[in-house]
Write a protein that binds this DNA or RNA. Sequence first.
DNA 1: CAAGATTGATGTTTCAATCTTT
DNA 2: AAAGATTGAAACATCAATCTTG
Lengths: 153, 153
Amino acid sequence: VSTAAECDHEFLSEPEFRAWHGALRFTTDALRAIDGALTDAHGMSITEFDVLITLFNAPGRRLRMSQLAESVLLTPSGLTGLVARLERDGLVTRVVDPEDRRSYFAVLTPAGATQLGEARITHNAVVRTRMVGPLTARQIQTLGSIWERLGAV
Amino acid sequence: VSTAAECDHEFLSEPEFRAWHGALRFTTDALRAIDGALTDAHGMSITEFDVLITLFNAPGRRLRMSQLAESVLLTPSGLTGLVARLERDGLVTRVVDPEDRRSYFAVLTPAGATQLGEARITHNAVVRTRMVGPLTARQIQTLGSIWERLGAV
DNA sequence: CAAGATTGATGTTTCAATCTTT
DNA sequence: AAAGATTGAAACATCAATCTTG
């Protein structure tokens, strides 16, 4: 995943390029590592993990399909398929919103919460190894404020 | 794209979570923005752009398929298909390596270089808007050294 | 037999069109 | 007519198996 390079100095300076390219490279590599670890240890993709943890943190452990799709950065139709798989595996159920019968809620099941709890250990271990470990507390803090500045919630 | 959250404080502190989650969110959003801009303006996906720019920066504007696949973070078979499409569009050609006839080189064509030149303007504009603009030179510098520390070349 | 690359089958995601409810 | 969500077709990437060259 490059996306620009040495030739670009007229438009993107060397430090600018490094800042962007490094972010891209780091997150891509980390995502692959997490996905691999989750798949090996729990047969769970990182997309599935993302849906489960997002539901876990939502009030009532439930979210409308459209809200969930946005949080997870998936298109509505993409989420439909993913939630269908999770429902087949018993980790999530779908219930109609009585207020607005066009809407469906995806709800985390107890089984889903259990699976998630195990997967989180794996997930956090990878994040610790690849990011938290090598950096100082000050650098961690700095990263956080930079993302805030960039509007990445 | 969450991947952890408020509940994780026992394992990942709040600043740690923010550092990781922000990186994920920022790069995902930026990638989508770049991909959308490239698609709208040039009918080019970010993966295609990545292949073209990587070839552009390679000596002789050519790279073995396996080397290219690694730089672009795609599997060999995934790259085969992508390069086939680029070849069909005349942006890249494939030539056998005379030294080792198992290997193919992907070579950027003049037409490919032209297309790339236009696309780079779009690409750099998005990176400027979303990252370079909002940050100070010092923050840009800091980001670069953090990625270096994390081994993200 | 090992290495570079491709093929075919599989799974996931997107896009356009559709259905239902408001 | 607009919004929430789903469906089917197509695009894209991955995996295992295969072919060719070393």
